[in-house]
Every structure is written in structure tokens, then in C-alpha cells.
Simulated scan of single mutants.
Amino acid sequence: MWILGHRGASKAAPENTLAAFSLAFAQHAHGIELDTYQVDGQIVVIHDRWLNRTTNGTGLVTCQTLPYLMSLDAGNGERIPLLQDVFSLLPHTALFNIEIKHLHCTDSWIATVQQGIRQSGFPVENIIISSFNHRWLRSIQQAWSGVKIGALTATYPQSGLGFAEDLSAYSLHMALDVVDENYVRKAKQAGLKVLVYTVDHPQDMVMLADWGVDGIFTNVPDIAVNTLG
């Protein structure tokens, strides 16, 4: 089972920072998940719309300038990273899930990600693009042939797997609170990888492994590694 650091090893280090991502790999995670906003032609790594919870800044992320965002403390002296910064520390064997929280220009977003791939040499086949906004995913998929799409949901859709099939998704990313064994089995029969978030308790990890889930997003990669081997 893949173990992906959810916002890095975010239980032990400030979430969505280079320290959290580096720690996740030091704890032998197979990959990481992070959250992104498009600001001033760049892609910044942060989860919340508002800066107040995770930084010493204030206001909406999308209403700030890039220099202001780069000046903030994101915890323990860490800075809000650019996506390009994260590419520079990724092992080339890692799985890299980029979740989109804000997108205003598909073409420039793709160009920025592809620049990171070229500069780092990171394999594009190890990247999964996910979002709760499936229109953005469709737009990216149409403009970037072959990129892997993660169909992200916090609900158990009435349409079953229809939303993932409509996206020609590589993987289904589903909330722990709503996933069940039957849905996992149907997704895998449909050829989808199944990843579940956010999984921090060993009993849940073992249960999901028994169900055949392909991967988990966890704040505690060290506990997951010790639990799942």
C-alpha cells in the first residue's frame, strides 16, 4: 500500500512546508500530497483560503502578492513554498499528488508544472493531479494529454463511479468517513486505483489494507510505515 504524507508529515512539522515534505520522505513515505493556489503566475503551496491558521499573515491567499506570501512564517520559521521548490526535493521514485485549491489559467498552470518537471527531471508518470473542482480537472486533462487525474470526493456519489469514469481518472481519492469495502471493490474492478484520506489510526490503516486500497494519505507516515510495513 502506498503511504503518502498528507501535506507532508504534518503531525510533526508545519503542514505544506519543505520541512514537512522532507520529513515524510525521511520517515519512508512513498510520496506526498500537497495543496496549491495559483498566485501572480506562480503556484504556491498552502491549504486554506485564509492565511491566518497556518501562517503569521492575514487575509485571503488569492488577494495577496507573491512577495507578501513569500515573506510569511508558515511555522517554525518555514516559508510558504512554491511548487518549483518542492520538485527540487522529490526523490524520483516518489508519488506526487498535486491538489488544486485555486486555478485561474489552465495553460499557465500546466506550463508552471511542466517547467518544474523539466528542471527537476521528475517523472511525469509519478504525478497525480486532483481537485474537488472537477471542471478544472477536465480542463487540464483536455490540455495535457496523458496526465494522471485523481477524482477527489468527500461524498458517496449517487452516480457510483460515474464521476470518476467521466474524468477518465487514473485514481479515486475518497474520504475515510464515506468509503466502504464494496465501493473499493467496484472501483478496482473498474480499473481505478483507490486512495483514501485522511488515515491516521492504525486500525483504519489495517482495515483499508484488507479491503485492497492502493494508498492512504496520512499525517503520520512513520506510524503508517510501522503499521503496514
Rank of each mutant, 00 (worst) to 15 (best):
M1K: 10
W2Q: 13
L4W: 08
A12W: 09
A12N: 12
A12C: 08
P14C: 06
T17N: 04
A24W: 06
A26T: 15
H28F: 10
H28A: 13
H30T: 12
H30I: 02
H30P: 00
L34H: 09
T36P: 10
G41M: 04
V45I: 09
I46Y: 00
R49N: 14
T54Q: 11
V61S: 08
L66C: 07
P67W: 05
D73S: 01
P81I: 14
V86R: 13
F87H: 12
L89M: 15
L89K: 11
L89A: 11
L89D: 03
F96N: 12
F96D: 03
E99F: 09
I100S: 02
H104M: 03
C105W: 07
T106C: 11
D107W: 05
W109G: 00
T112K: 11
Q114W: 02
G116D: 05
G116C: 10
I117K: 00
G121Q: 14
V124S: 14
E125K: 14
I129V: 14
F132Y: 13
K148M: 12
I149R: 00
I149C: 06
A151K: 13
L152M: 13
T155N: 12
Q158P: 04
D166A: 14
D166R: 14
L167W: 09
S168T: 10
Y170P: 00
H173T: 06
H173L: 05
D177V: 05
E181Q: 15
V184H: 09
V184Y: 08
R185Y: 14
Q189S: 15
A190E: 08
L192F: 12
V196Y: 02
T198K: 01
Q203P: 01
V206S: 09
D210N: 15
G212R: 08
D214C: 05
I216V: 09
T218L: 01
N219A: 02
N219P: 02
P221I: 04
